[in-house]
Write a protein that binds this DNA or RNA. Sequence first.
DNA 1: CAAAACGTTCCATTATTTGGAACTATATTT
DNA 2: AAATATAGTTCCAAATAATGGAACGTTTTG
Lengths: 276, 276
Amino acid sequence: MLALLSRADKMMNSNSESMAQTRETGTLGKLMVLLDLVTHADAPLRFTDILALAGQPRGTLHRQLSHLVEEGLLELDGEGRYAPGLRLLDFAARSWARNEFRLIAEPHLADLQQATGETVHLGVLRGQSIIYLDKVDGRQPVRMYSQIGNASPCYCTGVGKAALSLLPADFLADLLAGLNFTRFTASTHLSAESLLAEIHEIGDQGYAFDREEHEAGIRCVAAPLWSQDRSFIGGISITGPAYRLSMELLRQWAVPVQLAAGRIMEDMRIRLGPRR
Amino acid sequence: MLALLSRADKMMNSNSESMAQTRETGTLGKLMVLLDLVTHADAPLRFTDILALAGQPRGTLHRQLSHLVEEGLLELDGEGRYAPGLRLLDFAARSWARNEFRLIAEPHLADLQQATGETVHLGVLRGQSIIYLDKVDGRQPVRMYSQIGNASPCYCTGVGKAALSLLPADFLADLLAGLNFTRFTASTHLSAESLLAEIHEIGDQGYAFDREEHEAGIRCVAAPLWSQDRSFIGGISITGPAYRLSMELLRQWAVPVQLAAGRIMEDMRIRLGPRR
DNA sequence: CAAAACGTTCCATTATTTGGAACTATATTT
DNA sequence: AAATATAGTTCCAAATAATGGAACGTTTTG
């Protein structure tokens, strides 16, 4: 359970000029910082760019980058620029294909997509972020990694708020205290207080809305989802453009979304055993 | 250029009871071996399972796994089983979204898909494997990571054989010498000799077929694709079921596939500069 | 051409990893 | 219920790998 608030907070919002937080992962931790730097960059980085960002001595940085390249985690092009390596794709492809939660949820997501005609997501809470594990879209073949694997803030997504409503009060308080609110749209929550109020409401209702809080013109309705041992805390959602999805309609869809979530949890219970 | 035959051979066919090949990546290399073990497993592994596979002392292995879990690269469930971590998805999502070659090829893949109605792939040679970088399928919304990120053998895929036809003779010889041929179907190449003969033919023609060599009932036609500095060596293909894609039809499609490859390379030249 | 910027290599010092052993916790057997 | 086996965790001196400053090439710039 503690794992929920674990190191994954490095994934986002780690711009909080961290209090020289000593990592306990030694060599690996230092290398992962570099991987983060390069994968978060908008374009491939030169050695000198990374040098400035990482604040390591030149010799040290050079060897670290060499090791990452050697392992295929980074790639160095002919102009001395470092980009994420293809081995990351290879790892991800396998980890996604075999993810137990995703495999169990998949048919139910497809059903929900069929029933509504809109895009359906499965997301899991990791630190302060929602990581999307799956996406089913019936229309045009949408760009694949467009959403899957992406980390989005928990405080302005339907799945995120639904997930937060599952947390015990003390964990929730800790998590909220660590959030850096960024205004994405006019309706994005900007304080822990307003967010907490809505989370309580969501806890009572059993479903959450995203009222164009992350992206203008995009709404969703989400239901929370958890495994019995709480190693999975997340949710599913139906998402679409505001012009097509009135709040009226989203309220109607709250029921099917909750039902689908219930069926997924039932399957998890059966497939993963009562202990999880 | 040497990078082509680099460490990526650890991705596949590394079952070749390796001659105690010392990795030069120290701590990172040892940890990557563990990540490989866990991501290649069919199901989450227990500590003892990994102990047997990795052949490390218990104390050492325990700390290594702890570090990987701490960093989110592995996940430990309530039953003491290790599975690939979600951070891998996060890394992959970003590395895919920003991959320059994929971004450039994308519109051309879509055009080719529109023109033929069949599935189009973009793949790159990495070691002895083809890693699929993109896939465009016009029909049902196909499972996303189904192909993208997956490593397939170079000797029995259209893109693979097309890519091999680009290699200088000495590199090709080295690569072929290291291959472990596995029979996937009745028509899979099983020797370097027969493969080399076809690669020469492909080099002359400028396109390659997959005559149900990897998967029974699946055929494709592929064209090679490279960046000017040869840091990208791969290809694109049109793939589909044999009952719909006669060899007749595939031969006709060889031209549009080659034209699309040409347009992609032209765009690479423009967007990445003449040096690459 | 000189100077500067960029990247790479070297090696004594320092920090981390190693691995055997002791220890704890959780099943399984008697 | 006690005894035993099995699984997983912690500890610490010794072995190993990482560190970082300095020196060395290489390319770009004025």
